[in-house]
Design a protein around this nucleic acid. Structure first.
Lengths: 144, 144
DNA sequence: GTTTATGCAAATTCTTTGCAATACT
DNA sequence: AGTATTGCAAAGAATTTGCATAAAC
């Protein structure tokens, strides 16, 4: 309960520290990210912000967050877009070699920051810049 | 040159062996897959088939190919869909644990069938069903 | 006061669906 | 002949753009 308050209080500072203007709508959206530990879709945010802000505003907020490195895009196996906080990225360094996990049971997508992306050996001549891994299966909550 | 002819000749048989009717449009589309070693987008196919068949027909052909396990879907980092032949899948067994490689230079997406998908260790409780890997970088042709 | 964000409307793009005409087996 | 495929039109979903108003710095 105190963590909820703390997180919500963090939103304005996080926005400021990323060079973003602090508006009511952005604070609300960012709070949803801070209070959930999984990736959020535009549709989900639209539902949550129903009366408070426009669909288009949410698109633009997400775009601004992406640009400033506050969140990153996660795609599920069907190509549907979700967004998640860049918890392990600093303001300057961005690595998107995250392992993402999509639960077939609850449908949530998680960023498994603790899982190391393996070094893959590719055929001669191929140079790796980024590695994206999407695992599908059953998450810890749903496998109980 | 003979390989081109051979491949094109293969298309009708491949269709038949997958329980698909042999139509002019499907043979044309499948030939593009057989003659290229990278994933093809709907847009690319639309361009190639411009005068010969409708946009919608291509969607339906791809859908039929997917259903019969002739091709599989590949998504790039932006969520754009491409399709590639299931070269390592038999008629009955399908594994989609392919490693896909998207070249930042030429924009092509390749299926690296020879690259083994590593066994990843996830936190307690997570169960893996499928693992998708998309690597971005520079392909062998572009790195020369 | 200047710059940036918002809401609303409308335009784009991508994909799916219905149905009558056509092609395949 | 019987069944599946095609083309065209139109519907639907997701995302983007333009512009005047409002809010942030």
């Amino acid at each position: 309960m105190s963590s909820h308050i703390q997180h919500s209080t963090n939103a304005p500072n996080l926005l400021k520290s990323h060079g973003l203007r602090v508006t009511e709508g952005r604070v609300e959206i960012l709070s949803y990210f801070l209070n959930d530990n999984h990736a959020l879709s535009h549709t989900y945010l639209e539902e949550k912000c129903k009366k408070s802000q426009d669909r288009v505003t949410i698109y633009r907020a997400l775009y601004a967050f992406l640009e400033k490195g506050l969140i990153h895009k996660v795609l599920d196996e069907g190509g549907a877009a979700k967004y998640a906080l860049c918890s392990t990225c600093s303001d300057t360094v961005h690595h998107h070699d995250h392992v993402h996990f999509k639960c077939d049971t609850c449908g949530q997508t998680y960023c498994l920051d603790t899982v190391q992306v393996p070094k893959l050996v590719l055929p001669q001549g191929y140079k790796i810049k980024e590695t994206g891994i999407l695992i599908q299966g059953v998450c810890d909550k749903c496998s109980k």
